[in-house]
């Protein structure tokens, strides 16, 4: 069973989460330094979110179609993304099991994992704030 009701719900939560990350200097700084453009492709429900740090100054977050060519693309079920932001995904295991597909210079994206860890704490409150019926357990 899908965690998110539909694409709109998925996009809203992910965009809100990344907006919160963007507002947090400690998390945003290493992402901007990387100058990466990362696109997350979700399925069940389908969705897409692009985080563009290419100018090194401002993070541009786009839910849905985006004409910027990503450097790294990550593909996963929406439920895996949900569990990731709850801090419940063993990323190495998910990569080994093929639950996460990573396209491009993967090491650049994996290097940013420690930087975004504090967002695990923000995710439940973002779900709650949006009043969305998403399980956090």
């Amino acid at each position: 069973m899908a965690v998110f009701a539909d694409t709109d719900e998925l996009h809203q939560i992910m965009a809100d989460l990344w907006t919160a990350i963007k507002s947090d200097d400690q998390m945003a700084a290493p992402l901007l330094s990387s100058r990466l453009i990362v696109t997350f492709h979700y399925r069940e429900p389908d969705g897409r979110l692009t985080v563009d740090c290419s100018d090194g100054k401002e993070m541009v977050i786009t839910a849905g179609e985006c004409d910027r060519k990503p450097v790294v693309e990550m593909f996963m079920k929406s439920s895996v993304a949900h569990e990731f932001w709850l801090g419940k995904v063993n990323v190495p295991m998910a990569l080994i099991q093929g639950k996460i597909v990573a396209k491009g210079p993967v090491n650049k994206a994996l290097a940013l994992l420690p930087a975004i860890k504090p967002a695990y704490g923000l995710y439940p409150s973002i779900i709650e704030k949006n009043g969305l019926k998403v399980s956090t357990t």
Binding site: V72, L95, I100, V101, A102, K103, G104, V106
Partner: peptide, 8 residues
Amino acid sequence: MEYQGLNI
């Protein structure tokens, strides 16, 4: 390069 990455 379309195949660079993991599980592509």
